[in-house]
Nucleic acid binder design. Sequence first.
DNA 1: TTCGTCATGTAATGGGTTACATGATTAC
DNA 2: GTAATCATGTAACCCATTACATGACGAA
Lengths: 192, 192
Amino acid sequence: MVVGRTDVLVLAILGTLAEKPLHGYEIRKRLGSQLGPFRALSYGSLYPALKRMVAADLIGVNDDGPDPASSRRSRIVYRLTEAGKAQLQEELASAGASAWEDDTFDVRFSMFEHTDAATRLRILEGRRSRLSERIEEISVGLRAVRERHDAYTAELQRHGLERVEREVEWLDKLIENERAATSGDDDPASAG
Amino acid sequence: MVVGRTDVLVLAILGTLAEKPLHGYEIRKRLGSQLGPFRALSYGSLYPALKRMVAADLIGVNDDGPDPASSRRSRIVYRLTEAGKAQLQEELASAGASAWEDDTFDVRFSMFEHTDAATRLRILEGRRSRLSERIEEISVGLRAVRERHDAYTAELQRHGLERVEREVEWLDKLIENERAATSGDDDPASAG
DNA sequence: TTCGTCATGTAATGGGTTACATGATTAC
DNA sequence: GTAATCATGTAACCCATTACATGACGAA
């Protein structure tokens, strides 16, 4: 396979294109308006990725939009092929361990609208247990740091721990919501 | 110059070695017990970096510890050279724009104990204004996301915004502390 | 004696950015 | 007309990881 199996960038592009066909510049803008690893994606990454995806037949190209008379040449609109749609569906239905790593999680989460409830729950719970591990690690580190008494390092550690703990609380709310929605149907994501 | 001017890894190693001479494996452990970009530094990065630093005369090598009779060969202890100490002091006294980027900030912050009060304040304030910019960016993105109504993406964005806002609050407490300490002297970092 | 950890290192690879290069379109 | 933004792309580079390779030491 030309395109790496769980290439996060490819997944993000696939997800962006799922809504509607877009040209490269616009894809970057959409990705840039979201959190996660592609907040400031460079064209030096984007365009080669699009090329690879075309070569792998995940996306196809179309000249410009629906109005050829309104000038504006040299704008390449990408749309999902059937293979691309299938690939996206396949990835959305699976939730490997990478789905709860920092970078991948954000990308996966932003596609929850198109993910089935069971997979959403698996990802949220996987993420949660990943963060629990990290809390344990940081706690151990905190004790070690305190022994070498360094007020600033300890404070940084303490703040980092707090941040992760808060993310766990956030996940707990989301998981609760998902569970409620699964039994009673309806009402996704409103843990604000 | 062989070693890049503000190589964060080099700075982190310099800072770790400032306390006392250590061998590579131990440097990695210390770095690993802290937050920041070197939580899980690989040897493939560490040892070449140490080599570069030796070549640049920032650190020097010594065979093992003070007890040659207690066996244990092949352990290379690194210590700061005068040039290394000078380089560290120079970097600790300066606070370029990179000092408030995500990765660098944590490393710089963990060395605050050895940084003068004025530079500490500059870094904290720089970081704060950096995050203010980000809050503005995310807020704009949030409005854009809400227009395309996607409950999950919006929730992710909202949570990200909240996280950054909390970090700003944390910084505010630290800045306040630093200001109080500068006028009255004493008592660093206790914003818990 | 074998397993886990300590300890050091190199080569290949990966996944991104930066710098460079070009040109059309839009707003002032 | 000219500056900003839209729009696409390549080549060089950076900085890390992974996989590989080696070997000593301590404990079961």
